[in-house]
Design a protein around this nucleic acid. Structure first.
Lengths: 192, 192
DNA sequence: CAAATTTTCTAATGATAATTAGAAATAGGG
DNA sequence: CCCTATTTCTAATTATCATTAGAAAATTTG
């Protein structure tokens, strides 16, 4: 890996941390720079603007989770039940959410306070992820792994809320994704 | 009501809206002032600093919800089941959350990005609210209204997550607290 | 109405921030 | 070691922002 790529990555990592902690407007290019062991001007060798850094952090925060979930679902054997597939998806979401907590939390915490132009460019990705889960849940319900009378739109929002909120209360490094996923799955999908 | 009290209130209302929309650091005193039909300097006749406004918005955002929930619970007749009491609490939380959406969302969205001194002063109130729910759930479980094997700490966090997340997806003015509360209650507390 | 009080405004002040220009330093290949 | 391309820095520049001073306007009270 090239040195410049590593530096770019280091800037993104520290930026994600700052954005999570201080918000979009509260994060100063200077803070990012010093946390990454450089001066503010050097940042501009890698990025055009603070906005560009922010947007890339947002994008990564969602993409890593989406990719991990898709991969986990694809890796479940065909003969495994839909309930187990949901469990795998939830565990992957939780696991990635916390492994890259600065990115995903920067995304979740700041999205609603992001300038509209940036929000709009991120919407396609967001919608795709929502749609992916909608399909997962629909198939699971059709297979009887989720109560037939459950309102899937609501269920999905409850699920997102419960999962994403873990970023606000699970202590850093204390995440037990498998256990948490199991409990959440049992709580929300009690179909039998 | 005194005129100056009304003005103070108007400043808080518009400030809450700005803090929700643009975050703690992204909200300018000037923006608050113009949205409240005055100049920035006039704000300082009512508040010592932007931080003071912010802190008061945070406090109101949580207090209104806490008070509404306590009141709703106290209003349930003694002979009503614990499950119905939980339902009343959830509906009150959701209802207040959205009725004063700018305040509560300003609180929820920005708390994690708030300067530590401010966070610390808000912790007592936060903890009290959490404790209140812990007791509600404990009593409900003891009465058999919640599965005996449920982990109440987790359940409470799932519940908070699901409820608070509604601020991010329920369209303004479209909140049907009663229906949403019922669905959430059924989903999370399926004890029988 | 006039004096006293409350409220709001205009115009600084001083800090802080994003970004740029262009000079220095560093590193890799010959 | 030297040349070249890459990377980083120092020092502006320009803008924005919270806050204050103190004058004007509005409101209340006698």
């Amino acid at each position: 890996m090239l040195k410049s790529d590593r530096t770019r990555r280091r800037i993104l990592d520290t930026a994600a941390q700052e954005f999570r902690q201080r918000g979009y407007a509260g994060t100063k290019v200077n803070d990012i720079a010093f946390a990454a062991n450089m001066r503010a001007a050097s940042i501009y060798y890698y990025f055009e603007s603070k906005d560009q850094i922010f947007e890339e952090v947002l994008e990564i925060g969602l993409r890593l989770v989406f990719e991990a979930v898709r991969k986990a679902v694809d890796a479940t054997p065909p003969d495994v039940g839909h309930r187990a597939r949901l469990l795998a998806a939830i565990e992957a979401h939780l696991s990635m959410l916390h492994e890259y907590g600065d990115y995903s939390s920067a995304n979740i915490r700041n999205f609603g306070q992001t300038p509209v132009e940036i929000q709009q460019r991120q919407m396609a990705q967001r919608n795709a992820y929502g749609e992916y889960w909608r399909e997962l849940l629909t198939e699971a319900q059709q297979a009887g792994a989720v109560r037939a009378d459950a309102n899937l739109s609501l269920l999905r929002m409850f699920l997102f809320g419960a999962m994403n909120w873990t970023l606000e209360w699970v202590k850093p490094g204390k995440m037990n994704s498998a256990e948490l996923a199991k409990q959440l799955c049992d709580t929300l999908f009690h179909a039998e």
